[in-house]
Design a binder for these strands. Structure first.
Lengths: 206, 206
DNA sequence: TAATTACACTACACAGTGTAGTTTATCCTC
DNA sequence: GAGGATAAACTACACTGTGTAGTGTAATTA
């Protein structure tokens, strides 16, 4: 028999998707320990047995979800240093990019699941953070290039990029992760970004 | 018969202390859910029944520990704004004070237990954070005073103080809380504080 | 035919309790 | 001050109840 519709995936894939979705929701609000497989199954509208047919254990399901969220994060389009463009514009572009990540539901879910709702398994947490830092180092690269071009005066680009990040994350990351606060509205984002860049340049620009 | 020694507390107080100490350790590394009363009793060198003789439930024990850690945090000696002293010195003093808090084992334990190792019970987490902010607002008060005295140009002292905090906490708080990193050594603390103050003043000083 | 389901079931960890016996501190008497 | 009675606290241990990870199976559905 043919599929009902070309857009509808196979039943088993739909079920699988529903399980993952339900598991993300549950893990996110309740954490790893407190979430039960029965609850996930119920929320997914699926029998518990089906959950176990797709995922051999809670542990594996959790790991899969981390992968799933990771893959769902939009790839960061890096900004390369342009000697002829104003530093301020380029930095604002870099921060806009960072805000795009911080506003990404998948990213926030991932961070919350991985950090706030558990830190269960330190090994995996460290791995996660390492991969996040990897993805985030565009800023450091840019600052290093700007310093090499004589436009920024710093001997420690990594330190400087952490400072700039601190100026952002104190508003738009940590409160959201640890206190489940809502993401910043556009106006506040603008204020935070511009103020951060201006302060940064007031100190580091040549 | 008299007590064996004037310094040794009564047996029951020693037991109680051992339980609290053990519970802090367990909750800190394992979080609320994963920690069992049996483990706490074992670690404290006390029978499980004794734990329940002192604390009627795990929930209550946890709450008591939050109180205990809270009380153990050194009271913050606030810095008042002096119109005649250099801003830089006063800010460095304020940040030194902040670092004293961030280096306080009890404070870090509390924050970790309350935030990283659980965020179990949002109501209590929010209460905790509210009280922490209360204790931390000395910086905002100082900035407001400096702005009123015409020494700092900002219309939003709260925002400015969050920025300065972000410059510090990105190095000396969040990594310790979420990744259990070691506190900063003295040299790094100095670098972080001075760099933060200089950047802050480069932007806000009149 | 392959996946899903209901359901019954195992095994285990854990919060919390009840009890009977032992230890520790205090107090009273000599 | 020594010594024994007394009360309070501690301990071992057995036990209840519950929640939950994970499995096996026979029937149902896509």
């Amino acid at each position: 028999m043919a599929r009902h519709s070309p857009t509808a995936p196979r039943l088993t894939d739909r079920k699988r998707g529903a399980i993952i979705e339900a598991a993300i929701d549950e893990f996110r609000v309740a954490g790893y320990e407190t979430t039960s497989m029965d609850r996930i199954a119920a929320r997914a509208g699926v029998s518990k047995r089906t959950v176990y047919n797709h995922f051999p254990s809670k542990e594996v399901l959790f790991a899969q979800i981390l992968r799933h969220l990771w893959d769902a994060i939009a790839g960061s389009d890096t900004v390369v240093f342009h000697a002829d463009r104003p530093l301020r514009d380029q930095l604002l572009e870099l921060l806009a990019q960072k805000f795009r990540l911080l506003n990404d539901e998948a990213f926030v879910s991932l961070a919350r699941v991985a950090i706030a709702a558990g830190i269960h398994s330190p090994e995996r947490a460290l791995d996660m953070v390492a991969r996040m830092n990897e993805r985030e180092e565009g800023l450091t690269v840019w600052i290093r290039a700007a310093a090499a071009a004589g436009r920024l005066k710093t001997e420690d680009p990594l330190f400087a990029s952490h400072q700039l990040e601190g100026l952002i994350k104190g508003f738009a990351f940590w409160p959201q992760i640890t206190l489940a606060q809502a993401p910043l509205d556009a106006a506040t984002q603008k204020k935070v970004a511009e103020s951060a860049v201006d302060m940064f340049l007031a100190y580091y620009a040549c």
